[in-house]
């Protein structure tokens, strides 16, 4: 793509680094900002700047938070004997929206992937093991995405957790509610048959 200005090109380069945004869309956004009042761009830049400068991550679970300890960790009614391990804060929000879970979380901040240069030390694994040392936790729930990297990470975590007296569980995976068997992929269906549950 050829740009009329180096400034436009730089802005497009930065914006197109965002997920789901290609160069074309980025250019449209940049030209839009130039067309709008200067203030629009200033407010956007300020909000983003403030976001980065002031956002906090919970010292216990690494969830996004306005304070040092997040609302979930500081709650007195949550079950502190359960920790649900997730990849990101958005997974915490998704599980919270189900209103089915009353334990605590631990946000890993990603999954292990040597191809992308991400190893265990890049994730919040040491702090998880520190939390475990308190002996308060009775169950760890692995709730990572259904990718190969997540599977590897789960496998690695169970190795690291085996020295603690704790029950390790994993969220169930299977045929979606309202889903039809014939349209369920063979791997999921095969797994659902193998790991069937007693009928209640």
């Amino acid at each position: 793509m050829n740009f009329p200005s180096r400034l436009v090109e730089d802005a497009v380069t930065e914006i197109s680094k965002l997920p789901g945004i290609g160069k074309k869309t980025a250019l449209r956004l940049v030209l839009h900002l130039l067309k709008e009042e200067e203030q629009t761009t200033e407010l956007l830049a300020k909000a983003l700047f403030k976001l980065r400068a002031e956002i906090k991550y919970c010292k216990h679970c690494h969830n996004i938070s306005d304070d040092d300890i997040c609302a979930i960790c500081s709650s007195t009614v949550r079950d502190k004997s359960m920790i649900c391990i997730v990849e990101s804060s958005s997974d915490v929000m998704a599980i919270e929206n189900t209103s089915q879970y009353y334990g605590l979380y631990h946000v890993l901040g990603g999954v292990i992937s040597p191809i992308e240069g991400i190893g265990p030390s890049d994730l919040n694994i040491d702090s998880l093991l520190e939390r475990m040392a308190g002996n308060e936790v009775k169950e760890v729930i692995l709730a990572l995405n259904s990718t190969m990297e997540a599977d590897t990470t789960s496998f690695y975590l169970t190795k690291k957790l085996k020295n603690f007296d704790v029950k390790i569980t994993s969220i169930a995976r299977g045929v979606p509610i309202g889903g039809e068997l014939e349209f369920t992929d063979e791997i999921t269906l095969g797994r659902s048959i193998l790991r069937r549950v007693s009928y209640e």
Partner: peptide
Amino acid sequence: LLKYFFENRTFDQDLLDS
């Protein structure tokens, strides 16, 4: 992972086992 171990002169058996 092997490349990372080699270049950084480090090793993690649990990770390799994974």
